[in-house]
């Protein structure tokens, strides 16, 4: 059952009309979440001169949105789109590597009983408790020592280990991979690595997609790590790029509409990703109610 399976169909057949009070509560919640975003859309559709003069919740009708996107594209010869591309590299590459490492570790922890297993698992769980901010500075210094600071790797490498991802993979692997299948593989004489790739991995895929998405969002939204690691604006992801735009201003008039449009455009890829992949969100993993 996916996280987004519709409640109505699953619980159909209960007597009575529509449940209005819960509906109203949910609509209010939805409005609270969407209104600020609607304001962002309305503001992004205004020309720089209209931003502070038109009523806030009315969109501009003078083609402001296209003009703003054009200025965004022109901003330092397309730097904004370079940042978007970087964000995709960090989030996509980081999440892919992270999912792979988590899948292997989760599988190893779930399917083998070995000396040091408890220690490894305890260490990884303990790591959840150390705030990322505490680690970011010494991580930066170590990267500097290795000559990796201000490279793609300086952001990618620290994003790979995800204690939560490993935990989820362990839970999921334990639930969905039958030991009998692995034993059958062993009888056939397959190597352990081969068994993992040919037998273990396939049933884990729905869980891995969730881990991938969680990591993707986490890295996409991360600000502090790239902010500290990167000294070259051509390597910035969107969050850091937009932040510097706010702090440095630009030579173009209407910097506020530019920032607002930039903010709006920057959140569209993630929303699209959510809507496209919502079937694959298996957040039941997190609450521990996994059923194969």
């Amino acid at each position: 059952m996916s996280a987004f399976t519709d409640g109505k169909t699953a619980r159909a057949g209960v007597r009575g009309g529509s449940a209005w009070i819960p509906t109203v509560i949910l609509i209010l919640g939805a409005l609270y979440c969407l209104l600020p975003l609607y304001w962002l859309v309305a503001a992004a559709s205004k020309l720089p001169g209209e931003l502070f003069t038109l009523p806030s919740f009315l969109p501009g009708f003078s083609g402001g949105l296209w003009e703003n996107i054009a200025s965004l594209t022109n901003y330092r010869s397309g730097r904004y789109w370079l940042w978007t591309w970087n964000s995709l590299i960090y989030a996509g590459g980081g999440a892919a590597l992270s999912t792979m490492v988590s899948a292997m570790a989760g599988y190893g922890l779930a399917k083998y009983n070995f000396a040091g297993r408890g220690l490894v698992f305890g260490f990884l769980l303990g790591a959840v408790l150390i705030p990322g901010v505490v680690l970011a500075v010494p991580q930066y210094l170590l990267m500097s020592k290795l000559g990796l600071a201000s490279t793609y790797w300086s952001v990618l490498i620290p994003s790979i280990v995800s204690p939560l991802g490993i935990y989820l993979c362990r839970v999921y692997a334990a639930a969905v991979i039958p030991d009998e299948l692995l034993e059958a593989g062993r009888i056939d004489g397959a190597s352990e690595v081969r068994i993992f790739f040919s037998i273990g991995l396939a049933p884990m895929i729905p869980g891995l997609i969730t881990v991938f998405l969680l990591q993707f969002v986490g890295i996409w939204n991360n600000f502090l790590l790239p902010f500290i690691m990167l000294a070259d604006e051509r390597l910035f992801p969107l969050t850091v790029g937009l932040y510097t735009m706010v702090n440095q201003g630009t030579e173009q008039p209407g910097v506020y509409t530019l920032i607002i449009t930039g903010a709006l455009v920057s959140i569209l890829p993630l929303i699209a990703l959510f809507l496209l992949l919502q079937r694959y969100w298996r957040l039941d993993l997190i609450s521990g109610s996994v059923k194969g």
Binding site: R76, S144, G147, A149, A231, D232, Q248
Partner: peptide, 22 residues
Amino acid sequence: VSRAAGAAEIVQKLSAAHTAGN
């Protein structure tokens, strides 16, 4: 030209880049 840092962050970003050797 690179706009790696605003006036406010120039010391921090320069030390960072310096430590990193670039």
